[in-house]
Amino acid sequence: MASYSTNEFRGGLKLMIDGDPCSIIENEFVKPGKGQAFNRVKIRNLKTGRVLEKTFKSGETVEAADVMDVDMQYLYNDGEFYHFMVPDTFEQHAADKNAVGDAHLWLKAQDMCEVTLYNGNPLAVSPPNFVEMAITETDPGLKGDTAQGGTKPATLESGAVVKVPLFIEIGEVVRVDTRTGEYMSRVKS
């Protein structure tokens, strides 16, 4: 079984902790000038999404999680499962609501996502950092108001609600940062 020593710890490394696959968020090396070294790590349980802290004696080894991040194209949602495809091999994977989590707000057919596979099954889905989506619902635009501040809520085709400038109209396509959920710009079609 593959394993990692604490001095290989870094953000994003996937480990088996208490029987679940986890990803390191933050790793802090702690050592007095004279005395034992430790690694204090913040990790995310990839099954539950929960963040927990662990402390290891430096030099200890931890079992690696058989987890792979694969770029896949989002195809469709059949009501129960979200379907993804590896473009090169046409291999398809179905992810349940649990694995998709909040990413469902940013899924648009044809877009490329990062799907985390654990023992070959989808465990988590990361949307692209930026998506372009059409507005399906928002208050009428205020013509001419292109420079002044002020925002209003708008619903995207995926169902996500983002704050957009007042001049944006239904049917327009906007670019959104999925990490913050913030409107970036209007996309000319």
Binding site: P32, G35, Q36, F38, L52, E53, K54, T55, K57
Partner: peptide, 15 residues
């Protein structure tokens, strides 16, 4: 949080 303290020596605990 999250440490198997039983595996530490007394001095390791103090550090």
């Amino acid at each position: 949080p999250g440490i198997e303290a039983a595996r530490l020596t007394r001095d390791e605990c103090l550090d």
